[in-house]
Write a protein that binds this DNA or RNA. Structure first.
Length: 157
DNA sequence: GCCAACGTTGGC
DNA sequence: GCCAACGTTGGC
């Protein structure tokens, strides 16, 4: 099983928004980066766990735990001229952009701030802390995933 | 709003 | 295929 960190701007879609969805699931649409698309296509599998990270906000950090509940499939927003994610170069029989469905998995007792992540020497390998990292989804080790869940006091069950 | 660190685009 | 210009991301 693989582990992932998924960034979202909470003003657009937050961890609480995910929990408010009727089935607590959401298509992770709007990815328009080839590296991330290829990761979704090749490496992201149903059952994988992820951390839901809030970016571009007052206090960036990890808000909760999610699970992937689909494999990669076409992101329909690429075909919608009214969508901000519309891509006129993408053909229906050859979709350029993919998404995966994510579902709420667990809450954290405490939001884990970016400052806390940076202050933890055992997270030196975490990609999001590296300079210049800009991908909206990044892989992470089970070690780092478990440690961050522990820092946040993940509520089990 | 600034700006570093990318990724993408397009002229050649 | 090179690379300058441009666009985007995201912390600060």
């Amino acid at each position: 099983m693989n582990h992932w960190l998924l960034k979202s701007e909470p003003d657009t879609f937050s961890f609480d928004d995910l929990k408010k969805r009727p089935k607590k699931t959401e298509p992770w649409n709007g990815v328009r980066n080839y590296q991330v698309r290829n990761m979704m296509r090749d490496d992201m599998k149903p059952g994988d766990l992820g951390l839901f990270y809030h970016s571009s906000c007052e206090v960036p950090g990890v808000a909760g735990v999610v699970r992937l509940v689909s494999s990669a499939k076409p992101d329909v927003t690429q075909f919608d001229p009214k969508s901000e994610y519309y891509d006129k170069g993408s053909k229906k029989d050859e979709p350029r952009w993919l998404l995966v469905d994510v579902a709420w998995e667990a809450d954290l007792k405490n939001f884990v701030t970016l400052d806390q992540l940076r202050a933890e020497p055992r997270l030196a390998e975490l990609l999001i802390l590296r300079r210049g990292n800009r991908l909206s989804i990044t892989p992470m080790s089970k070690h780092d995933f478990d440690l961050i869940c522990q820092m946040g006091g993940m509520k089990l069950g």
